[in-house]
Structure formats: C-alpha cells, structure tokens
Amino acid sequence: MAPHPAAPTLIGSVQRALRLLEAVGSHVDGAPAKQLARETGLPLPTAYHLLRTLTHEGYLRREKGVFVYGEAAERLTHGGTAQNRRSKIEESLAHWRDVIGAPVYFAVYRDGEIELVAVADTPTAPPVDEWDDFRATGHAHAIGQCLLSQLDEQGRRDHLARYPVRPVTPNTVRDDRALLERLSTVGRMEPLIEREEYALGTVCAAIPITVGSTAAAMGISVPLHQQERLVPAVERLRAEVGRLVGSLAFSISI
C-alpha cells in the first residue's frame, strides 16, 4: 500500500508557514509577498496561499501592501517573554534558596489579589503546604501580611472586606482590628514574621520588594524546631536582595 501523503504534506506546509513568519519578523516595517517568497525560496503562488492563511488566522496583518505580525503572533511573542521573565525569577529564588538553606517565595499584590508567583524549594527543605487558600488567608501568613502592610489603610480595609480575618490556626491574629493595628506598626522595608499563624509547626518571615508601584514580597519558611534560624535567615535574605536586586530583571508582567 502506498504511504498516505497527507502527513508529510501537512508538515511541509507548517514548515513553509514558519519560514514565512520568520521572514516577516526580520523586517521591522514588514515586507511584500514577492520579497517574502524570494527570501524563503517559495514559489509565489505558494507564498500567497500561506500568507492569506496566516492573515486569516491572525498571525499576520497586511498593511499598505506589506505583511506584519498580527495579534496571534504577538501573543506568542509575549508568552515567550513572560516565560523568560518567570525563568529569571525562578533562577533568582533558587540562588537565594541555596544561600539561605530554606524555601524562598515570591509574591505580588495584583488587581486586589495576593498572587504567589514562584517558589524555590528542595526535597530536604519543602515549602509550606497550601492547605487553605493562600489568597484568602493573607492575614495569616507572612507573605500576605507583608503585602498588606504595603497598601494604604483603605486598600487594607478593601481587602479585608473581601477576605475577612478568620482563624486558620489557634495562633492566627484574632480579628480585623488587631491585624490593622499590627500592620500600622510595620516600618518601611522591615521584615514581617509570623509563628504558626498559617500552619502549625512552621514559622515564616517576609520582606517587601520594590517592583515599580506594585506591592511585592519575598518570604522564607522553616520548621518550628528550627525557628532560631528564621531571623538570621531573613536578615541574610534582605542583605542579598539589597545587593543583587539592582542587577536582576524582576518583573510582575507574567
């Protein structure tokens, strides 16, 4: 039986379409179909057909006789950029994890929500188990308290109106008023420490990070029986961040 030609034909079409996309990307102001066909070595009718298909699917736009990237291609580009940013953040967290010897967390406060962006941990230094919704329990963990401490009073009250204080462990702050009083006493760039307020058997600390106008924080956690490590570790983290953050491309656009 003769081999079915559809698969190799389809693969060939995809390869030719990708060559056209690469050719379009090499021209800042776009390029006409004849030039793209010549640069990719494709017959002009084939190039026209693929360019029309790519335009119909949103990967290209035709403007004043030249082809440029469309929204679909731009989404792919932005996705790759976002992944690169996330990788840089994860690499940075892994560095601090190795320096400190404890799990390291990075979180931001975005669109009224606490968002845990990345965590670096190891099998011998596991992260805190998110047994209760991390976003809804910002009052109970160091990362959340650190982020809330960077908001103004109205921002804190708006957050607590959506996520009121509730007991997570027997050590959780007792009510909204007590939490607001605690947050009002936190100095700028001062570490925030909590002991077994989110998870029994764990103590945590977090420091604020400047990322434009967005509240961000880095945190660490250690088991309760190692709590004497917490303050030296968070001070080490603060020193490392102060020394290295200027050379790192922290981004929250991910």
Rank of each mutant, 00 (worst) to 15 (best):
K34S: 03
F134G: 00
D129Q: 15
R195W: 14
K88N: 06
V203N: 03
A107R: 06
G187Y: 09
M189P: 00
V68M: 10
S247V: 02
A7M: 12
Y69P: 03
E197H: 04
S92K: 03
L224A: 14
A17S: 12
E194Q: 10
A125E: 15
A233I: 08
P43Y: 14
V211W: 06
E39N: 05
M189R: 07
A206W: 04
R238H: 12
L42Y: 09
G144C: 08
L54S: 04
T53M: 14
S253A: 13
A140C: 02
R177Y: 05
T210L: 12
Q35V: 09
A23P: 08
T46A: 15
I209Y: 05
T122K: 05
R166K: 14
R86G: 01
G144V: 08
I11F: 13
T214E: 05
V128T: 06
L54E: 11
A47C: 11
Q145G: 03
V99W: 10
H4E: 14
T9A: 15
E91Y: 07
V117N: 00
K34V: 05
C146F: 01
G80W: 12
P191I: 09
S149G: 04
A136C: 05
G30Q: 01
P232V: 02
C204R: 09
V241F: 15
T9Y: 10
G79H: 13
E240N: 08
E39L: 08
T55W: 13
Q83G: 04
I220Q: 00
V99Q: 13
G41H: 11
L147F: 07
Q35K: 06
T169M: 05
L160N: 00
Y59W: 13
L248D: 03
T81H: 10
V203T: 09
L230I: 09
G101T: 02
E113S: 09
R238E: 05
S253K: 12
A161L: 14
V104Y: 02
L237T: 05
I193T: 01
E190Y: 12
D132H: 09
Y198V: 11
C204Q: 07
F134V: 09
D121P: 06
A82Y: 05
M189D: 07
E153G: 00
L44N: 07
I114C: 09
E240L: 08
T40P: 01
A73E: 10
Y105A: 10
V234G: 04
C146K: 06
Q15M: 10
E57A: 13
F134E: 00
P208M: 09
L192T: 08
T137G: 00
S13M: 15
G12W: 08
A47V: 03
P208Y: 06
P126I: 09
T214Y: 02
P167D: 13
D132R: 11
E91C: 00
R156Q: 15
L21C: 11
R162H: 15
D152P: 02
E235H: 15
L44Y: 14
A199W: 04
L76E: 15
V234P: 02
R243F: 11
R157Q: 14
A6P: 02
P5N: 12
V108S: 13
I143E: 08
A107Q: 07
L21N: 10
L224T: 15
Q226E: 15
A118M: 06
I209P: 01
P43E: 15
E39Q: 11
R86V: 02
G101K: 07
V28A: 13
G112D: 08
D152V: 00
C146W: 04
Y59D: 07
